Each structure stands twice: as structure tokens, then as C-alpha cells.
Amino acid sequence: MQTLDGPGRHVLFLNWRDTRNPEGGGSEVYVERIAEELVAHGHRATLLCASYPGAPSEETTAAGIRILRRGHRHTVYLRAALVYLAGMLGFGPLAARSLGRPDLIVDVCNGLPFLSPLYARCSVIILVHHVHREQWPVVLGAWGARVGWWIESSLARRVYRRCRYVTVSAATRQELAVLGVDAGRVTVVYNGTPEIAPGVTSRTPYPSLLVLSRLVPHKRVEIALETVARLAPDFPALRLVIAGQGWWETRLRDLVDELKIEDRVRFAGFVTEAEKGDLLRSAWVALTPSLKEGWGLTIVEAGAAGTPTVAFHDAGGVAEAIVAGETGLLAHDTADFVEGVRRLLADDAFRQEMGRAAQAHAARFTWAASGDRFANLVLAVTGGVPTPAAEGYLLP
């Protein structure tokens, strides 16, 4: 890690959620781990995000990230602008003592951006995990999808036309290029592989599958359930654990009943890091049927536990989180997905070899390296001097 020469920067992250939010996911893990690395480099990091029931309005994490929670999932965008402007003008309870004057804003676009260049008086980086073209209709329906897609593909491109972009995969950088964002303005900073909680859990004695995901429509957990139903005749002891929570759970439970696989599926709900580690180590195969991922953090988490994953070829960054045919399998449609799972369950040697390769692949991605890349970009954008050891990280 390169420590900072000269005064640290104050970096303000604007994100709709934090990792403690019940709806938090991989995007939130990425933001906070990068923020932690920036603190380790000598910078200050503040995260402004939405509140949720029972959450304190302000706290500082053990790693030194200051978290301010304002508004809810729909109003956090406006509240972020008001908090920033109050700090700049120096009045009111939301003023400088709460936020201060950041040197850089990292505006996290999860479909809807904060549009911070419209009011910010500092440098702005926009962080895009993936483009949501396919997800808008699933989440909002036809009319809402048109509005969401116009904001993401047209309005945002104009608002951020002078800003540096960061994304988490080459696949997303290519998608941004299709929208008209010059690839030279986009830096790829991969996710690190999260540490797996230590444990001695062994593989289940029966064929077992794992889905680790938020339970929302675009994660397409239905495909995992359909896979279990199709493979059950060939693997009578087959079981699936679904770890995660979300508002789509009721529909998924109804589908379990419709498919008559109640005795094969367990909804684990929220799991602790220790429980997650045990699940990853015990499963034979992990499933990521998601419509789109910027990277696929759970894929490399599974890989770290020696568990191969089956996902979809056209789901964005998963094609980089998985080395197809070596660390996992990428399917072209649902039938191909089911057959990929069947192959891994049926061939012990193939599955175990792929698990070892997945573990080696996951080890290549570290948060320390990602932090070096992002910290160097912070200096470059705010007029500092990038450290020589990390200059290459600025290349798109």
C-alpha cells in the first residue's frame, strides 16, 4: 500500500445504501471497502446514504468511515444535495460540522445517479457498477423503465460529461462506451475478494446448491428453483439453500410450492459472515442466475471457498469474475444453465478441479490493490501526484 505524501483529501461517497441496510448488497460492500482503503492511505472518507428503520443518523465505523444517513431510498438524492449545500454555506444543523467541505465526491450510480455535478463545487467521480438497460423493465415496468433508462443513458451522460468514471469490469466500460462515454475517461477498479470467515465446514454428503443474493426480481432466483425441480429426478438428495432477504421472497416461496420442491429448498434469510462462510464451504455448486452484475462479488467469494459457480454469459461482469470452463460455467439460456449444474453435480473430479481453479482465481483480486488504484485516481483527479508504483492503474 502506498501511503499519502502531503495532506489527505476528504472524499464524500454518495450511495443510496450502506452495508448495514437490510437491502444492501455488493455495491455497498465495494464502496465501503474502497473507502476503508482510502482512509488507510491517509484520506478522510464520508458516506452519505439513505436511512432505514432503527439506523442511527450518524456513526463512524471501526475503519474510520463516517456515515451520515439522510432521507430514505427515494429522497436520499435530494437530501444529499441539501446536506452538501448546507455544509458549503455553513448554516443549519446539517452544516460544516456534519459534513465539512469535501475535496472530491464519488457519486455512485445504481441506475439513478445523484447528479452531483449540478451543485458540487469540487471534483466528481461517477462510479457505475453496471448499466441497467435490461433491469429497468423488470423493476419498474414499461413506463417507469423508459424514464429510468432516459435518466441513466441520456441525462446522466450529459451531466457527467466532464467527469472521470470508475467501473468494476471491462464489460461495463464497454457498455458505457456504447452510451457515448469515451473509454479514455473510464478507469476499471476491480472488486477485491472478501475474506471468508474461518471455519472447518466440509462439503455436504449430498448434492447441494447455494444462492447468495438479495431477493429481488432481477436476481432471477426463480431459475435456481427451476433448476432444482428439473434435476431432482436425477439427484434425489439434491438440496438448495437461498441466503439473503428482500421483498421478492413471498413470490419465490409461492414458486417453491408450485414446483413441489418444499423439502429441497431452505430460505436462510440474512446470514452472518461466519454462517456465509460455512454455506460457501459446504455447497457443491454456487448459482448466480442474475440478469446483470457489474462484477459478481458472490462468485469470487464462492471461489475463495473452492466452490465453482454457474452464471449467465451475457450478465455483464460475471464473464470476468468467472473464467469460463475453468473456474465456473457460463450459460447462454436456462436450459444450458440447468445442464451446466447437472454436469458439475455429476462429475466429482471436474467439480473439484474447477473449485481449485476458482480459489486461485479469486486470490488474484485484493482490496489492497484496488485501494491503491482508487487512491491514485483520487490524487490525479484532485491535482495531487500519483505514486509511481500505481501509475499504471490509471490506464483505462
Rank of each mutant, 00 (worst) to 15 (best):
R9V: 02
H10S: 10
H10I: 01
F13N: 05
N21R: 00
Y30S: 11
I34N: 01
I34W: 03
H41Q: 15
H41I: 01
L48W: 08
L48K: 06
P56I: 10
E58P: 01
E58A: 12
I65A: 09
L68Y: 10
R70M: 08
G71E: 08
G92S: 09
L94T: 14
R97V: 13
G100A: 08
R101Y: 05
L104E: 04
V108D: 08
C109Q: 15
N110V: 15
L115K: 02
S116G: 12
A120G: 04
I125T: 02
H129V: 12
Q135D: 14
A142K: 13
A142V: 11
W143S: 07
R146V: 13
W149D: 12
W150L: 15
S153C: 13
S154G: 04
A156Q: 11
R161I: 03
R162I: 04
A170R: 15
A171T: 12
Q174I: 03
Q174N: 13
E175Y: 00
I196Y: 07
T204K: 14
P207I: 08
L209P: 07
V216S: 00
P217H: 09
V221L: 06
V221Q: 01
E226G: 05
A229I: 08
L231Q: 09
A232N: 02
A232T: 10
D234N: 08
P236G: 00
R239V: 12
I242W: 05
Q245D: 14
G246T: 02
R253M: 05
R253P: 01
D257W: 11
D263Y: 07
R264K: 13
R266F: 11
R281T: 13
V285R: 00
L287W: 02
S290A: 15
T298K: 08
I299W: 03
A304G: 15
A315I: 09
V318Q: 06
A319I: 13
A321L: 06
I322C: 08
I322H: 08
A324P: 14
T327L: 06
L330A: 06
D348T: 14
F350W: 12
F350N: 03
R351I: 09
Q352A: 15
G355C: 07
A357R: 11
R373K: 14
V385C: 05
P388W: 10
P388T: 05
P388M: 03
A390I: 02
